[in-house]
Nucleic acid binder design. Structure first.
Lengths: 140, 140
DNA sequence: CTTGCACATGAGAATCGTTATCATATATAT
DNA sequence: ATATATATGATAACGATTCTCATGTGCAAG
């Protein structure tokens, strides 16, 4: 239950937070901007404020429920933190986002950080390219 | 000569562009925001507009002279494209940026992209951690 | 060396994404 | 059921970036 999730991370269970969380869990798109999340909620008849969406997303991130990605173009995308860690590859033509995980790279990153005298706490790795085959061309 | 560089990439050689380019080449900091570049130029007595800095940086990037990085916090940093490709590790406490290159990771990325049906054209990889030892604490 | 003209510039307005403010509403402990 | 701390939504404020437009300038042709 989503209420449990919120309680578990120490957040009050409120209607807007539940709306956002269950929307994220049911959405087909796994990576969305705050604006998109807000718009889709409003379009589906919900009454919610943009500020509330931003606030909730920030809290969810702090609680580890979601992750924030800074893809190219300066846009910020949010994604439910489900399952194991992974990185992303995004199509520069159609914007499609695929996920992947590579143990070797993960290990190597840790070694590199250590060699440079850093204690690794996080990383962002995004590949960019063109997806061949069924790339539905450009996003409008 | 910087004039050559501009001419080579098909840009008119203008005073502001020369100022920005030579400033980037002489600066100690290798990674700076547009605002920082503007401020340092103005502080050193130059007459230049912020809009011009943004315009020039965008053109330089399109021409391959510089690279744009989206580090955490939403801030955009620019860096002269000198020498071979490399990635970054930034200290989450003091903001220090170190560079590194790892052949194994580069190769692996290409393999991964291919396996997923993408033609890799670019990638962004930034590690975040705390630099031990002489980390001058927080940035002001 | 002039001159013309396309292109570049600087100042400020406009825009975009995000955060702060504040009066009102609501979740939770009692 | 009630008190109280916290959350909400509307809107203002904000910082970063881009746009507008009147003026200035690189550079190629004469």
């Amino acid at each position: 239950m989503e209420s449990e999730e919120l309680r578990n991370v120490g957040l009050k269970v409120t209607t807007p937070r539940l709306k956002i969380l269950s929307f994220l869990e049911s959405a087909k798109e796994k990576h969305m901007t705050a604006e998109t999340i807000y718009r889709k909620l409003v379009d589906s008849g919900e009454v919610i404020g943009l500020a509330t969406v931003y606030r909730a997303l920030t809290q969810f991130e702090a609680a580890g429920l979601i992750t924030r990605h800074h893809f190219e173009g300066g846009q910020t995308f949010f994604e439910l933190e489900r399952g194991p860690h992974h990185d992303h590859i995004v199509c520069i033509r159609c914007g499609r986002v695929e996920e992947f995980y590579d143990k070797m790279i993960e290990e190597r990153q840790r070694e590199i950080a250590e060699k440079l005298g850093f204690t690794l706490s996080d990383h962002a790795m995004t590949l960019y390219g063109e997806c061949s085959g069924g790339c539905p061309a450009a996003k409008p």
